[in-house]
Amino acid sequence: MSKRKWLAGVALIAGLNCTAIGWRHAIASAQPRVVKITAEKFQFSPNEIDLNKGEPAVIELTSKDTTHGFLVRPLKIDTDIKAGQVTRIEVTPQSVGTFKAICDHYCGLGHGNMKLTIVVK
């Protein structure tokens, strides 16, 4: 093999590797960000999350005790969070702002205090 052919082969392999790395990176960056929220009587943890306008995200909701609700009317989110299950909500905020999420499944005497703030930047 001539030195020229050997160098061309090395360049080709390197180029393919770079492309593959780029694809992997592109695939990884296309995955929506996952935001985990835990509900329990009578709070959400964390009690504030950040999302980005136009960026898809997945909110993963779990409950430590009983069934809770998760309502954010401006983001069209309204679901129950059942204990022992993971509830996934896909969301792509379309406008910036600060939105309140509440538990809308009655869970006891502190139910009215279950709130979470969503900041969309």
């Binding site: 309502l71 309204d78 509440i102 809308d104």
Partner: peptide, 9 residues
Amino acid sequence: KPEWEWFTS
């Protein structure tokens, strides 16, 4: 006022 839970779904 949905954010005060003043609604019926």
